[in-house]
Design a binder for these strands. Structure first.
Lengths: 237, 237
DNA sequence: TCCATTGTTACTACGAGGGTAACAACAAAA
DNA sequence: TTTTGTTGTTACCCTCGTAGTAACAATGGA
């Protein structure tokens, strides 16, 4: 019940609407008072909410005394609702694409917060072929593997044992460079290196600054140089 | 542009959010002032909205002077958003089904408004086999044909010529009964018959009362009787 | 130096949604 | 018949999020 309400709210239902509709959909049919008791929505508000749900085509009524209400086939109504949302998204994507007007594209970008970093990384991984992953943290690799095939990945890390059994190319850093994974504290703020993705001309690094995650994307020929550096300098046999 | 904004709002974006995001997605990247000029959102609000979009993982920044903003791959972000909505709907349907507890089912139900009538009719048509359609209006039949096959439909009407060329069984009402399609005015309110669906034990009628559409669903053995009546009395050879 | 732009903060106005109280209409029970 | 409880409706308050406006320090180029 509570879960249903939460999900409905995610779909744009108001609190009262979600509670009334969930109750009605589960019980099949009910009077206003029953809905009030089961959902906790104030009794007088129930009528108001039911009218609104009726306008949206989700509830039908029998005008008796007391009036009885019923959710119109929840499955088909919600499916229809889903279709509308899907087509809305598709319309949005299409109309954005139509009027796209990319001018100069800045080669350096910062992304704040987890959500943005995930999106950014996903977008980069999807359009890239081969990718280098530099990290000391296995968790990041597991996320990457949801998007890319193992054979497209090369992992560079401090200890290859962490990534064994994955059928992935792994390279180990020389000892003198493995310190890049250690925390640094500057002016009381803790900085740590989390992850670096490199593909083609693009790199995307994730760092922890204090309590926040920061993503930095750099698209420059420089990247190729960095790749070479990795091979020439940082790696142990 | 305007269309994009409208669609985004349907997906839960606020007005300012939609306008800023649409602008940014179309232009690729822009400064706050450019966004302000193109979207009409107050310049100082642009910063606020951009931060909110950043938190949602849809915008990235380069901290220069002036700062430049960019929409993170709109297609993949919106696709992801769509997936979330779809899975939310599926969860809702599942958890409603799990806790369904249908008790006595009332045999008479009223549905107000176009949306509800559509949903109701759709639900009925989907679970029915053969169906009788009584109407004088071709438009309703076209909608029904989106859901049901022609061979499952029998149309009863005042003038079979309206429904020619559709490969559907048609029956014509005797002249003395064809008046049921005419408007009636009672106490200044206009009543008219629009559509009647009959299948098995269930009937669903649509009427116009004043300016509103009213749907009435009746699930009673009586319905079979009505069907017989149609055959015995109302029809012309 | 001056002036335009940038980024920030504070504040007002408004409406939607949540929440409470009260009341007439009605129906069943005493 | 009166009483009592329920039903459906109306009116109101409060809060919060969003739209919209004003003002100001910081920045940076001319």
């Amino acid at each position: 019940m509570d879960e249903t309400v939460e999900v409905l709210k995610k779909l744009g239902f108001r609190d009262y609407e979600a509670r009334v509709y969930a109750t009605l959909a589960m019980k099949g049919e009910a009077t206003a008072s029953e809905i009030h008791r089961m959902s906790g929505v104030p009794r007088n508000k129930v009528y108001e909410v039911l009218r609104s749900l009726e306008d949206k085509g989700m509830v039908e009524t029998v005008k008796s005394s007391p009036a009885v209400f019923r959710a119109i086939d929840p499955e088909s109504v919600l499916e229809e609702y889903k279709e509308q949302l899907v087509s809305a998204v598709d319309t949005a994507i299409r109309s954005i694409k139509e009027s796209e007007d990319f001018s100069l594209l800045h080669p350096v970008w910062c992304v704040r917060g987890v959500a943005g970093i995930k999106n950014r990384a996903k977008a980069m991984l999807q359009k890239s072929e081969e990718v280098f992953v530099i990290t000391a943290n296995r968790a990041y690799l597991d996320m990457i593997l949801k998007i890319k095939n193992p054979e497209e990945i090369t992992v560079v890390t401090d200890d290859v044992k962490k990534f064994s059994g994955l059928n992935i190319k792994t390279l180990e850093l020389k000892e003198e460079f493995s310190g890049i994974f250690n925390d640094a504290v500057i002016d009381g703020v803790r900085y740590s290196f989390e992850l670096l993705l490199i593909s083609g001309y693009e790199s995307f690094g994730v760092y922890r600054v204090g309590n926040e995650l920061l993503g930095v994307s750099i698209s420059l020929p420089l990247i190729i140089l960095f790749q070479k550096m990795i091979f020439l300098g940082l790696l142990a046999k």
